[in-house]
Amino acid sequence: MLVELRGLGKRFPVARDILRRPTRWLLAVDDVNLDVHRGETLGLIGESGCGKSTLARLILALVPSTSGSAVVDGIRFPGASREEMRRFRRRVQIIFQDPFGSLDPRMKVEEIITEGLSHERLRRAERRERAKRLLELVELPVTALGRYPHEFSGGQRQRISIARALAPRPILIVADEPVSALDVSVQGTILNLLVTLQRELSLTCIFISHDISVVRHVADRIAVMHLGQIVEIGDSAEILRRPLHPYTQALLSSVPRFNYAPLPPRGEART
């Protein structure tokens, strides 16, 4: 098990009294128990404000939890030592939603990709070699190294983000809505890339999205989040075929029903 969450919770103060003591709380993540197996892709779906991004931040140890515990890659939170944290930061990486806001416009692609390798104290040529290999992995031309983010389209920038995330050879990738800012025609190429990379590098992946039709292409299992809790979790195909929780059913039914299917061979009825 790569990720084990036990009774994990996070609450934020939303109102304070005159002494700045919190009087009301918002329960963003509420008693979440979740296991993520090594090498699997878990899809986490839910609407804006359901707590899925907060849960991702907890798993990434970017914010401290307010209750429960998390064990990620053998490191226990809360309570990780400084040395453990250093290892953890290399082993766990994130890909963000906005390909425009998440890359430093003043850095060249080579710097962006290799920034996370500074601890390895590589020689310049070695760094460049690593950067080239990463670009190949995400199917970008090597000439991209010396260019700046603004010279790329949204889909290409997302490839740069993926290369950056892969640079320190992580074991866990958290992708927070990685395709929802992209054109539908580009979404497919990025989703395919993520699936291929995940298989080739045997990565563990947590894929967050509000869109179930995107998640189904990448996830082995799907967890549905609603009001800070996981209301349903199971095998992707199973959840898509037979959603049990009414909220999951509601989510599924709001996806545009798109009934186009290639014509079946002659003689068969069209479904």
């Binding site: 539908v184 979404q187 497919g188 989703l191 179930i212 189904r216 898509l240 996806v255 798109f258 186009y260």
Partner: peptide, 28 residues
């Protein structure tokens, strides 16, 4: 949607996520 004629229309329709088997690669 049922019978696109232009190749671009066809490609756009084929690239929509949400159809096909789970974990299948999308046409792009």
């Amino acid at each position: 949607l049922g019978a696109p004629r232009h190749r671009y229309t066809r490609a756009l329709i084929d690239s929509i996520p949400g159809r096909g088997e789970p974990r299948s690669l999308l046409r792009t």
